[in-house]
Design a protein around this nucleic acid. Structure first.
Lengths: 141, 141
DNA sequence: TATAGGGGCTTACTTTTAGTAAGAAGCGAT
DNA sequence: ATCGCTTCTTACTAAAAGTAAGCCCCTATA
């Protein structure tokens, strides 16, 4: 009964917003999953695989800026989490390809919404940053 | 014309999936936004504010495990990004409360979907981890 | 006047995590 | 026998996060 989650009886006195609760607790499985998914490269790897299986170096190329070490490490974590599957084709040299599991596929839907939002609003955020920086320079402190 | 995005001509030979592209490039504004949003505490802060404004220590209490330093730092980043607003009530002592801007509110919708998915599937992930660890122990090397 | 305490931070220091560069295993081709 | 390709590791260094303490402004208490 990890951190009270498994049979959480939904206490009626709390949570006007039912949805976004679990991951706020530091000792919950949900927090661990959130940490893995939103790790430095987790979102990119998961979303990178959303359109189909990719080999190690294909992923590395697609995700600009990731190092082999971090790609390897992130993939290992996600494989362990059951979100990504690692398949070794017994050729020579053996080709390793990664794909989403059915579980992982469910996750990429919210992640793609996030991606789309970010793509569509990134420039608004940049503009806000510039406004903020301009204001801050004017106000010495 | 930052990193070719503004008037990206959509080369037809790539991207069968139009949507999830931008943040894959390391020099794009979208990548910066993704980094801020999915920073260690970004998702939790943003989602924590989704149900309404909160004061500094209220947020700190809601988000188990965050330190004051990281809360302060994360909030500063998100305020600069125009996703969160910082309001100082001129009382004595002054109360500082944080809330989502309209821009930030748009972002919390995808994030809440992510939260819900994680809450609903965290145990499946934990189970996958246990299976994986059991298998790995059996296979030395 | 001294003192304690709350709220919202910041600073100095330590630990963890990520980045960089190089190398190793396994094989086939030259 | 050496080269190179692919998928990872392994050292080492740099950056980010964690920890603990303190600061500033105010208010209440004695």
């Amino acid at each position: 009964m990890l951190c009270g989650v498994p049979v959480r009886p939904q206490p009626p006195e709390s949570l006007p917003d039912d949805a976004a609760d679990d991951a706020f607790r530091s000792d919950c499985p949900a927090r661990v999953v959130l940490d893995h998914v939103t790790s430095r490269w987790g979102v990119l790897v998961l979303t990178g695989l959303a359109t189909g299986p990719l080999r190690f170096h294909e992923l590395r190329t697609k995700i600009e800026g990731i190092s082999e070490k971090m790609l390897s490490q992130t993939l290992r974590t996600l494989v362990r989490d059951g979100l990504v599957e690692r398949a070794v084709e017994p050729s020579s040299p053996p080709r390793v390809s990664y794909s989403l599991t059915p579980l992982g596929e469910g996750l990429t839907q919210p992640l793609q919404h996030l991606f789309i939002w970010i793509r569509d609003h990134a420039r608004l955020v940049s503009a806000a940053q510039e406004r903020h920086d301009a204001r801050s320079e004017g106000q010495p402190g």
